[in-house]
Write a protein that binds this DNA or RNA. Sequence first.
DNA 1: CGGATGCCAGAAATTACTTCA
DNA 2: GGTGAAGTAATTTCTGGCATC
Length: 277
Amino acid sequence: MESACNTKLALGLGFHRDPDIPSGTKKNQRRPLHQLDGDPLPSLSLGLPEAARHLCVPKVDTGMMTAARELNQETLSYSNCSSSPKRSQIRDEGPEFERNKVTTMMMMISDDDEDCSTPRKKLRLSKEQVSVLEDSFTSQSTLNQKQKEDLARQLNLRPRQVEVWFQNRRARIKLKQTEMDCETLKRRCETLEEENMRLQEELNELRSQTHKAAAAAANSPFLMQVRPVAAASYTVMCPSCKIRLVRSTTENLPKSFLSMSRPRLCDIQFSNPSAAC
DNA sequence: CGGATGCCAGAAATTACTTCA
DNA sequence: GGTGAAGTAATTTCTGGCATC
């Protein structure tokens, strides 16, 4: 990478193509190799990055393609890195001045050449630019080529910058949405856990009361008898209506049955529905 | 017609840089 | 002034859809 910067040489393998034709003019509109502008023959070149940038890498095989792409990408990324001072080196005139200066630099870049290679520079977009981008994003979160170019022209940015901004914006929105969903699920989970605990406690209480009820029923003067009806059931009698009730020991008696001095069984499901009082 | 291949756009992941406390 | 966290522009890699052969 460093050598690419210093020597400004790049090795390219590929077909020549008109650099002015945007690579993604129309999705899925692929041109056959024989229709490409320039020399369709494969070429190997060693030269200035600017020249190498415009090579169209042929798809010979995956490995070669990847290598060529990497080479091309690296050339793209660093071919111009010696031309701009680092931001930290021009820091002494206040943030607003800086911002304007940086924006100006960007404008110069965009004026020079749409796809001019620049080293990775962190350029802050101005409030106005962000505002316009936000407005545009609210109306639609993806742009077609023309919209992208129009917006870029309007904002004195490169179309690539507009594209990147939209990509990042979509990513931020998605991240925020994911965080919100996560938070919602977390709250819901907490609620359910509380509910679950409450129900568990209630269940335990009911179980212990069932046992007490069975014991109390055994000693109750109202009770005619507690005798096994089936393996796991017993019979009690409603003290008010003298109706006999068959309960399974595994069932829970309602709180009211025990808490009242004169237990009512009316709210219990009787073996004979018509006997409910 | 179905598979292989290439191209493209967008998402996802990552890096690099700025700003601010 | 140094530092770490947060924010974000830019880059890289991955993926799926479509067209062509």
